[in-house]
Write a protein that binds this DNA or RNA. Structure first.
Lengths: 103, 103
DNA sequence: ATCCTATGCATCGGAATACGAGGTATTAGA
DNA sequence: TCTAATACCTCGTATTCCGATGCATAGGAT
């Protein structure tokens, strides 16, 4: 069960903390949300590609333990978008909460 | 600018407060969120029909000032779903906030 | 009297987001 | 040896939302 629309922001946030690769980003989001947020691979990889296409993240191939992984890092414009996304999230979530908590 | 997935819950909440019709529900959501949440008609009416199809709301035709309006009220199962949706919202929004506010 | 705006309902096409299923391949442990 | 976890990817489908469009009435401005 996930929200629609928050995944790009969550990915940017993860990469702002440290560069990582797809599989680990997904695990991290799941762990940090205590299992609540659990995006599937069929969702994650296309989202990652789209972010790269938009220039918000950049990727490079890395080899670790004989395994090829595609690492991603956040770009300058990615950081700017993350800042904007965060404040948008605050505004929207506050608005929804305001309505739902109102008797 | 809207969240995806919260509209049915917001509609149920509005109808839990008082029965209403489509146009007014939209205005109410917009007003309560101080203009932040603004769902369009092309979104609202299909959502309303779907909720009725699922038995979460019921509708009846009412005439007011010579105008025919379709009024909706929340049903018993609609109230149950609303309660569940509210706790789900809390859980999900808390999870996202947890990740985004974390340095 | 006429026109515009707000009200009020509805449907359609298209875009975006997510999931599930399926495919490929490597590594580590039972 | 077999299985599970890791790691990446794509495709079809469902859902959600928006914008455009259509129709119709009421009220106020010109």
């Amino acid at each position: 069960m996930n929200f629609k629309g928050t995944l790009p922001t969550l990915i940017l946030q993860a990469l702002a903390e440290e560069p990582s690769h797809g599989y680990r980003i997904a695990q991290r989001i799941k762990a940090r949300s205590k299992g609540v947020l659990d995006f599937k691979e069929g969702t994650l990889y296309p989202a990652l590609h789209k972010l790269e296409n938009e220039g918000l993240v950049a990727s490079y191939e890395g080899v670790e333990q004989g395994r090829t992984r595609r690492y991603y890092r956040i770009t300058k414009s990615g950081k700017a978008v993350l800042t904007k996304d965060r404040s948008e999230w605050r505004e929207l979530s506050r608005a929804v909460t305001l309505i739902l908590e109102e008797a």
